[in-house]
Design a binder for these strands. Structure first.
Lengths: 135, 135
DNA sequence: CCTTGACCTCAAGTGCGCTTGAACCAGGAG
DNA sequence: CTCCTGGTTCAAGCGCACTTGAGGTCAAGG
């Protein structure tokens, strides 16, 4: 099966057909080829959607993801893509560090047996919560 | 200055007063002490909010964060907290791994000079986008 | 033939996480 | 005393990311 109907694709990526139509409507997915009026997707779309979902979980908006994905080979667009990607890298790095701190904090707090994450001794002044908010 | 007004606190954590009032209204912040009818916060609130924002960026909903933070020392609540925290740890781990893959993918793609993230050769079948979607 | 079910479009609705607006109050500067 | 700043409440509004509902098409199966 090299081509997928919208229902099948939705099942594979854990979305509903309506979500895929929505993605198409906002330009996140290219307008799918139609067979007898129905959308037909190449299997590669599964990958593209997995990428979208990953970026989304990392805090990118759909508009940003669209900007990252929508480079049609035009030099101007490519420059835009590079600018966006470059600007996003440090954000992603910071984000990963912070998430790791949060993870470690939750783990340590579980291990320490305290009652309350917020007041846990392990999370004192120099802990992850002490990180400066990014203005 | 050991106590903060709502405006000052908002400034420090990069939110608006309305956001802090909202947090209070949904039980994410304890009802602040009042001085002449105005909310007055201990400096420690800055830390609590930093923690909230971190958890939020890691994909927790405000309701989940409230559940994680709201342990008043009661044994039942503590058990709940441990259950939630334990259930969240693997999620957090997976999330960190995926975000790192995304980060590396963006970085590699920038380095490779290709035109398009989606079709970049570096992101082939075994790349990050090939990760199975989680249900 | 008729139903079933998956698909179509388009408009309206939903839930989350806040923000905004209206109407009011309190303290300090001029 | 008056104005300004910055706070108060409450209800309504907003943007994002979808979902739902109404109303229709089409192909296969009983």
């Amino acid at each position: 099966m090299r081509q997928l109907g919208i229902g099948e694709l939705a099942r594979r990526v854990g979305m509903r057909p309506s979500g895929l139509r929505y993605y198409e409507s906002v330009g996140l997915l290219p307008s799918a080829e139609r067979a007898a009026g129905r959308r037909v997707y190449p299997v590669a779309t599964v990958r593209r959607i997995a990428l979208i979902k990953m970026a989304q979980r990392a805090g990118f908006t759909l508009a940003e993801i669209r900007a990252l994905l929508d480079t049609d080979g035009d030099r101007g667009t490519t420059r835009q893509w590079r600018a966006l990607a470059e600007s996003k890298l440090p954000e992603l790095d910071l984000f990963i560090r912070q998430t790791q701190m949060l993870r470690d904090a939750v783990a340590d707090c579980l291990a320490c047996g305290c009652m309350n994450f917020d007041t846990c001794g392990l999370l004192a002044e120099d802990g992850p919560g002490a990180a400066q908010p990014r203005g």
